[in-house]
Each structure stands twice: as structure tokens, then as C-alpha cells.
Amino acid sequence: MALSSEDSGTRLASAAMVPRIGRILRRHRDAPGVWTVEIGETDPGVVPCAAGQFNMLTAFGIGEVPISLSGDPRDGTRLIHTVRAVGAVSRALAKLPQGAPIGIRGPFGTGWPMHAARGHDVLLLAGGLGLAPLRPVIYQLLAERPRYGRIMLLYGTRSPAEVLFMHQLEAWRRHLELDIEITVDHAGAGWHGHVGVVTTLIGRMGLDPVHTLAFVCGPEVMMRFAAAALEAAGLPDTSIHLSLERNMKCAVGVCGHCQLGAAFICRDGPILPYARLRPALAIREL
């Protein structure tokens, strides 16, 4: 018997609700309270995840949370996710030892617009843990370096001790064609990088606004200020892309928990152009 399109959609959604079982290959601490876990899957193998997409990760018996990919999207051997241990689920995920089972649903959502960025300068603007969902972009940009113009990363975080992936950032800055500026909110005299909010770095970059795409990820309030600063620097709102976080539960656009205006962030996002987000972000009740 042929399935109606409604039945077919329901079945697809149901399949997407069943987690696959992976195993923790490795985990390491990146900053106070921030852990990166590497996950292997044997059946059916690692499901590719694009830069900007997320998986729903389950700590069995506790719950599941949406976590963006933070590893190389071309790596077919493992999934890498970076988690801040702040709630019951994320704390449990961060503590999973090597070999422990972990549930995975996904990948879900839209990725960063990598194809649209070809031939353009790319400005990555990250705040705090927001660097993790942008790291896959860096891997991809560097792997396809000739396709892009100037690549810039502006990264702001709370203190020097909380800079994520520091060794990798230093290596990228030393050896590759990547402009990296790191700023912290507070620092002692031993820190010789920038001190101040990340938005103050935008005006110092000498952007070519017509040929630049900006990818922004961080706390929502920081992204609002960043988008305003990017517009002040001349970028049109269609060239600014934000990664949003909302209360994602089903991840397939059914439950409505993550709805923001007309968009379901899990399905239509998490990456959306500022031109589309601007009206909704201005409504405090959403």
C-alpha cells in the first residue's frame, strides 16, 4: 500500500527521532568547563555533518541536547563536538569516559553558506564557545584555500584562560593565510593580545564590505551588537549570517519549541541571514 505524503513525512520524522549509538573515542578539556568529545560510530558508520549543522547528543538516562559540529566536516572517521558543561545533560556528556555509549541523532539544520562564500573575503566572528561551530568552517576554508579571498577570524572571550583551541589558533596564525585577532574582556599584564569587546575589532580590519561575507556565532546579545557593527562597516544584512541557539527538542521542525517568528531554528536554521532574522530578534517576547 502506498504511503500518503503525510504518512511518509511522519515516518521520516520518526526515523530521525531514533538515536544511533556511538562510542566516545577520546575527550579532552579545552577551557574551564569546556570539553571536546570525539565520537566513533560503527553502525552504519559516521554520518557526515556539514559545517554549521548540529547533532542531538544523548547522555543515556539523562537527556539530549543539540551540539554543533566542532571538528573537520571532511573527517569521515569520527564526529567531534565541543560541550560546555553547564546543565545536567552537558555535564554528563562532558564526563563520558572513553568507550562509553552516546546517542546521536542528526545531523540537522542548515550549514554555513560555504558555497556562497566562494570568491569572497570571509570574516568569522566568534564569541566564547561560539568558536566551536565556526572551527569546521576554518577547516573547510583552509582545505579549499584558493577558492576564497581574505580569511579573517575575530574571536572574543572572557579571559586568556578561556581561549578555545589556543594551540591550533597559534598554528593557523603562524603558518597559514589567516588573519586572527583574539580579544578578551579582562586580562593581567602578561597578556599581550587585545583587551576589549570583539565588536571593536571590526573597524580595525579594513574590510571590503562589498566582497565580504560574515559568519557570526556567539551569545545572542553579542551577535546583535556584532551585526550592528558589521552594518556600520558597510556590510549589507544579506551578507551577515548568524548561528542561533533556541530551545531545540525534536530537531525536525515538529514540536515548535525552537520557533522564532516564522522560522523553526532546528530546521530552517541554526544558520540564518541577518536580513531574515532582524525583525524577529527585535521582538523581546520571541
Partner: peptide, 19 residues
């Protein structure tokens, strides 16, 4: 104005627990 806005944003400590 720019430094005032930046200082206020720093005061929010947005990287603490909001993301």
C-alpha cells in the same frame, strides 16, 4: 559613546553562561 557601549557589553559578561 563607543567605549561606553563596549564597557556595558563587557559588564554583561556574555561569555559566562549565556551560550
Amino acid at each position: 559613546l563607543q567605549r561606553l557601549q563596549a564597557a556595558r557589553l563587557q559588564l554583561l559578561d556574555v561569555y559566562g553562561t549565556l551560550l
